[in-house]
Structures are given as structure tokens and as C-alpha cells.
């Protein structure tokens, strides 16, 4: 952009005296101005802020684990509840995106909350559409948790987001007997049962996410986010939930981006007044 900011500022304020252009369609987006400009440069425009939510019940008794087990105990009802919540929330976000004439949702903010008896998954993001509208209807809208900057970088390298994929697993560590508890008392040693449960839940969840990507013919998953650790209400149960954007190569081959090296000529800390938006 090569404009005179002072002239533009005057014109902007003078334009407030006239009503908005009736031919313009109202739109909403949670993108910053940098992201809007970048998106426009790529040939897309934001159309609407969309969301999708699902709250799924975890059947009673799922987190009650029996005594006398020797290895990690998987809890399929809880795993299934998270998978269902992700699937339905994604369907709702896609439905809202299609209603806004979008071809996909970028910068999806994913909120996952696991309670004692329920799990909630919520997606919020901005639906985008090409500036030059395609004549033929597009396939089902995609969802991606990539920021517009990452989306632009990926597109420039010849890749395309396919879908947001997720995996989840809940594994209980078997409850220890009195002899085992006493044998470990006062020693700083590894707790193999908890470690095993965490390891198992990780493997299962990552495997699910990878399987989901393979089913979509994606080459890989990027920008993976993870929630893991023992549940607040049942410390012997390890949860592992992961999600990311499945991507596929659409160009003939990967296009190297060859970044330029720059040395910033300012102090190492940027001044940022966090109280001022």
C-alpha cells in the first residue's frame, strides 16, 4: 500500500457524514486488520463470525474403575463422548459457514472442557469466501485452527487445509494395593502405573487423530494442540485430547518459501502497552 495516511484519515472522517453504501453486505469477523489485508491479498474475504458447540454427557459410572486390575484401563464411553462432541460441533460450525456462503473457517478457536459428567467442545472462527465467487458450489467447508498468517504461508507452499481432526483417550491407572503403596512410600521413584496410563492415553489419542487424517487423504497434521494430564476430579485417570489441521499438497510439489534473513535494528524487547488495544 502506498498512500498518504493524513489524506486517508481526513477522507475516512469525512465519510462518516454519509450513510453506508447500501450495496455493501454487512460482515463480521474476529480477524485483525493485518489478517484481513493478508486474506484479501490471497483472494479471500471474511464473511461472518461462526461458531459450533456440542455438550455431550459422559455416562454415569464411567470414571469408577474396579480394583484388582494390573494394567491401564481404557474408558471408551469418555473417549466416545469427546469424539461425538468434536464431530457435532464441527458439523454445526460448517453449517453456519455454509449459511454465510463461506468455503471454510480460519483461525478456529477451540475450547474443550471436560467435567465430571459431561464434555463440551466449542469452535469459533471466521468464515471466508473467495472474492471472485466460483460458479460451481464448493465441497463441504473446511475448518482450520491455523491463523490467517499460517494459512497464507501454507497456501504459498502449495498446501491446503483439509479439516480439523482430533483424537482423545481416557485411561485409568489401576488402583494400587496396600503392599504396593507401602513399598513406594518415602521413595522418589517413577510411578509406573500412572506413567503407563499417560503413555497409553497419548498413543491412543494420537493414533485416532492420525487415522482421521488418513481417512481424509491428508498428508499430515500441523499446529497440533494438546490437553493432557490427570482429571481434576479423578486423579488416577489420565486424559489426552489433541487436535490439529490435516493438510494435503495441492501443488505438484512443495514450493520452498525461501525467507529473507533480517536483523531488526531495535532493542530486543518491543514496547507493547497491553492496556491499550
Amino acid at each position: 500500500m502506498n498512500t498518504n495516511i493524513r489524506t486517508d484519515m481526513q477522507a475516512a472522517i469525512n465519510a462518516l457524514g454519509s450513510p453506508p453504501d447500501p450495496t455493501q453486505r454487512s460482515s463480521t469477523s474476529d480477524l485483525s486488520i493485518d489478517e484481513t489485508l493478508l486474506l484479501h491479498q490471497m483472494g479471500y474475504e471474511p464473511t461472518d463470525l461462526v461458531s459450533g458447540i456440542s455438550v455431550v454427557s459422559i455416562p454415569y459410572g464411567t470414571f469408577i474403575t474396579p480394583y484388582g486390575q494390573s494394567g491401564p484401563i481404557e474408558l471408551p464411553p469418555a473417549t466416545q463422548a469427546v469424539a461425538t462432541a468434536f464431530r457435532i460441533a464441527a458439523e454445526r460450525a460448517r453449517h453456519e459457514c455454509a449459511g454465510a456462503n463461506g468455503i471454510g473457517v480460519v483461525g478456529v478457536h477451540v475450547e474443550v472442557e471436560v467435567g465430571g459428567q459431561s464434555v463440551s467442545v466449542c469452535f469459533t472462527g471466521t468464515a471466508v469466501s473467495p472474492i471472485e465467487r466460483p460458479k460451481a458450489p464448493t465441497n463441504q467447508p473446511f475448518l482450520t485452527d491455523l491463523s490467517v498468517r499460517d494459512f497464507a504461508l501454507l497456501s504459498r507452499s502449495g498446501w491446503q487445509p483439509v479439516e480439523l481432526v482430533a483424537g482423545a483417550s481416557f485411561v485409568a491407572a489401576p488402583l494400587q494395593g496396600m503392599r504396593q503403596v507401602l513399598s513406594q512410600a518415602g521413595q522418589n521413584i517413577e510411578l509406573p502405573l500412572i506413567t503407563g496410563a499417560l503413555q497409553t492415553s497419548r498413543e491412543k489419542a494420537m493414533d485416532q487423530m492420525q487415522s482421521a487424517a488418513i481417512a481424509l487423504s491428508a498428508a499430515g497434521v500441523v499446529d497440533v494442540s494438546i490437553i493432557d494430564g490427570p482429571l481434576g476430579h479423578s486423579r488416577h485417570i489420565c486424559a489426552f485430547i489433541c487436535w490439529g489441521t490435516a493438510i494435503r499438497l495441492v501443488a505438484e510439489r512443495h514450493q520452498p518459501i525461501e525467507p529473507r534473513l533480517v536483523v531488526p535494528l531495535h532493542d530486543h524487547i518491543d514496547f507493547e502497552a497491553t492496556s491499550i488495544r
Binding site: 453506508p20 453504501d21 455493501q24 453486505r25 454487512s26 469477523s29
Partner: peptide, 8 residues
């Protein structure tokens, strides 16, 4: 009213 909501 025909305007845009930005940075929502």
C-alpha cells in the same frame, strides 16, 4: 446497517 464488524 451495511457496515462491517471488525476485530470481533
Amino acid at each position: 446497517g451495511g457496515d462491517i464488524l471488525h476485530g470481533a
